[in-house]
């Protein structure tokens, strides 16, 4: 089986996000970048399926500048067999990325796509769903448990929803988006890094894919959200109840 796993380069989740003073963007100088954590979970799940079911062709793909090669190398070091970089300097949004991934899908013809439910930079949570729509195939989003069933023609998934866990069985091919608790991604090992150096990493100009992908969204300005001020400390439970009743009037 072949699994396609998109990896996005994002500021490391443990870095503090700083804004450029003029509000034109987020400071990237000196910032550590990582594989989007949800994408790393998606890749880990593909690797675990391979460990369980036997050899798979796991292809990681990223879209962006050459800097994204760093994240593809992480994907290869984790265990993916092959990497593909779609090179572009253009600003993209979810729909544009979905269109590019749809073209990659047509080129690669995977059995399914495993990807993060959202990227932790723009927090859009749209690309997987859009990709499924463009390809006319099914989707299972926010997945926290995944099992291939019926001779690997379907994926039985547990989905994390506001109302609790939902069960859904989706026909393959499909787009499956990973939620936080699907698994805990492995650390990259030294032998993994050494092996990754010999694995194929293909670079392809976006134009060569023949996709017209133009972002519809434009960010005009970035700012820090209004912050809450610290209130008062109360000495006792009794004082707290008094404040809530007589000052805040919420009970």
């Amino acid at each position: 089986m072949k699994i396609l796993v998109p990896l996005k380069r994002v500021p490391d989740p443990d870095t503090k996000i700083r804004l450029k003073p003029d509000g034109t963007g987020v400071e990237t100088d000196g910032v550590k970048f990582s594989v989007n954590p949800f994408d790393a979970i998606a890749l880990e799940e593909a690797l675990r399926l391979e460990e369980k079911l036997g050899e798979m062709d796991i292809v990681v793909v990223s879209i962006g500048g050459e800097a994204s090669i760093e994240q593809l190398r992480v994907g290869l070091a984790m265990g993916a067999q092959r990497a593909l970089l779609i090179k572009t300097g253009a600003a993209l949004d979810s729909l544009a990325v979905a269109k590019i991934l749809a073209a990659v899908y047509q080129r690669e013809q995977p059995d399914f796509v495993l990807m993060g439910k959202q990227a932790i930079d723009d927090d859009a949570n749209q690309t997987g769903q859009m990709l499924a729509a463009l390809l006319g195939i099914g989707q299972a989003t926010f997945v926290s448990r995944l099992e291939l069933v019926e001779q690997r023609t379907r994926a039985r998934c547990a989905r994390e929803t506001d109302a609790g866990l939902e069960s859904i069985t989706v026909k393959l091919p499909a787009i499956i988006t990973a939620d936080l608790r699907l698994n805990e991604p492995r650390y990259v090992s030294l032998p993994g890094i050494m092996k990754a150096k010999k694995k194929p990493l293909e670079e392809l100009e976006l134009e060569a894919l023949g996709v017209a992908a133009v972002a519809r969204t434009t960010v005009l300005h970035y700012e820090a959200p209004p912050s809450r001020q610290a209130g008062v400390r109360v000495p006792t439970v009794e004082a707290l109840v008094d404040k809530l009743k007589n000052e805040a009037k919420v009970i």
């Binding site: 979810s94 749209q126 926010f142």
Partner: peptide, 23 residues
């Protein structure tokens, strides 16, 4: 925004070739 609408709206948007903003 909810897990229900975040599952459905992006799919409908792409079917209609429309862009989307979340949250």
């Amino acid at each position: 925004a909810s897990t229900f609408t975040k599952d459905i709206l992006p799919r409908a948007a792409a079917l209609l070739d429309a862009g989307m903003l979340s949250d």
